[in-house]
Amino acid sequence: MKDNSISGLNLQSPAHRIALLVGVGLALNAALIGFMILPLKKRMVECLRASDEVGFINNRMSAVIRSTNQKKQNVAELQAQYDTLRERDVLTPLLNSYAMRAKRLVQPCAQQSGLDIENVVELSSIPLQQPQPLENSAFCRQPIEFTASGSYAQLTAFIAAMEEEYPMSILFSLKINAQQSTPETHKIQICYEWPAKIVHLSEQLTATKP
């Protein structure tokens, strides 16, 4: 006799066949839900989230991009201000020497006032104090000391000329010693400080590279 039973099911019986069919159908449905619907829903949620994120970022970027012209204008204005300040006020080294640059700047004022500058020395730079301290300050205070001789009137004329000509040069220190041998001519040590751009060694090397 032919065996049509599967683990006790009699396939000859229509009731059993239907029960088997229903069971298979339900299993198929469960599989459809478990392997197709749920993963798809998960992917949809992920896609929706990613899409929302990208959309949000796009909106933000678009909003930022709308300010491009304003930013360009601001940068141009700030650059112009910086160029003016740097050109007018910041001491730049002459062949890597701040002392020689300062001497070149000061000489006309000294000649105009009659002060005789005998020597010039570059002192150690001082970190620039700022209202909001920055980790990497671009500028420092660069004192330059001049040894000169002249009368008190010549000295005050020189200081006035410097204040007029170079407003950003600030008197750092001054020492006038009266001399017994020449009562009208004094030995003067006068030190001025300028804001100077901090030049790092790597920048110097790059600048001097042919």
Binding site: Y82, D89, L128, Q129, L134, A160, P195
Partner: peptide, 20 residues
Amino acid sequence: LTALNAQIIAFDGSRLKYAA
């Protein structure tokens, strides 16, 4: 640039005039 200008302006603010 704002920071650079602020640094120079901070120096400018520290000026004392001695000549007078």
